[in-house]
Simulated scan of single mutants.
Amino acid sequence: MSQIAQLASYAGTPKGGITLVFTAEDVAVEDFCMNHCAVHGSDLNAGTTFIWVGNSESQCPGQCAWPFHQPLYGPQTPPMLPPNGDVGIDGIISNLASMLAGTVTDPFGNGYYQGNKQAAMEACTACPGVFGRGAFPGYAGEVLTDWTTGASYNANGANGRKYLMPAIFDPSTSTCSTLN
């Protein structure tokens, strides 16, 4: 993991910028799959932040590409179809969205988080596996379905792209807020 932070520092990201680091399917990163699917970090001296996202299709898709892949544990409901037709990319996009929310709300580990600073719950980590209303462990919640492809989504992007974005904790209501 320290090599990821070091790699991000070589990018020359301007102050206030975010460096994105993605690893290929054959690159193993410490604690990937065991404790996290992605990480955000920072360099306080430089005023920069970075996000690392691992390849969630080739390594531990049941943990890091769920709900687009069968989970390793819990209810074995059928996986959702990925909105862009690629389990790995859609899993990566979902993990990236979580890290972007964490980076924006808690960029240097002193921003918005819940609980103990040593084991903080950030905006998206407080809502694991929640993508739509009524979500519970093993069920991502009520999301939209693209009737042409059968894919699940809750966000519309540019050029007709669809995405399944994780819920974010809303401190004003103390609930997980979803896009639909």
Rank of each mutant, 00 (worst) to 15 (best):
C64M: 02
N110S: 14
E25P: 05
N84L: 09
V130E: 07
T148A: 10
V27A: 10
I89L: 15
G16I: 03
N45L: 15
V130A: 02
G115N: 08
P14K: 04
G111P: 03
E142R: 12
Y163K: 07
S42A: 10
F131K: 04
G141E: 05
T173K: 14
M1E: 11
V27E: 07
A101L: 10
W147C: 13
T148P: 05
P14I: 06
A8D: 05
P78N: 13
C124Y: 05
L72W: 14
M121V: 12
P82M: 04
G134K: 13
E57Y: 07
M99A: 08
C127Q: 00
C37S: 06
G141M: 04
L7Y: 07
Q59R: 08
T125N: 03
Q63N: 14
P14G: 11
Y10H: 13
S9Q: 09
V143L: 07
G12T: 02
V27N: 04
M165D: 11
H69I: 12
W66N: 01
A119E: 10
Q3K: 12
Y153W: 13
I89V: 15
A155G: 11
C37T: 04
P75K: 08
G12R: 07
G54Q: 06
K15L: 10
N35C: 09
D146V: 07
G74Q: 03
P61F: 03
A155Y: 09
E142P: 09
A97S: 13
H69T: 14
L164N: 02
H40S: 03
T103G: 11
S177I: 14
G41Q: 00
Q3T: 09
R133W: 10
Q59V: 10
D43H: 02
P128I: 03
P78I: 12
M34C: 12
P67D: 06
S172D: 13
D106A: 07
Y10S: 14
A155L: 15
M99Q: 07
E25N: 13
N45Q: 14
S2I: 15
P14E: 06
D86W: 09
G47E: 00
G12V: 09
G12Q: 05
K117F: 08
N95I: 02
P171W: 00
A151V: 05
S9L: 06
R133L: 14
G88K: 02
T103A: 08
P107W: 08
I89H: 13
T49E: 01
T48V: 02
I168A: 07
A8G: 00
T149M: 06
G17H: 06
T19S: 12
A126G: 07
Q59S: 11
L144F: 14
F32C: 03
Q76K: 11
E57D: 10
W52C: 01
Q118N: 13
S56A: 15
I4N: 04
C33I: 04
I4C: 01
K15F: 08
L164Y: 01
Y73V: 11
G102F: 01
D106V: 01
D90N: 05
Q118W: 09
T23S: 09
V39M: 06
I51C: 01
N95M: 08
N116V: 09
N156Y: 13
G62I: 07
I4H: 05
G85A: 04
G132Y: 06
G62H: 04
A135H: 03
T178P: 02
G111L: 06
C60K: 02
A101D: 04
V21L: 11
S174F: 09
S56Q: 08
G54N: 01
G74N: 00
C124F: 05
I89T: 15
G141F: 07
T103K: 06
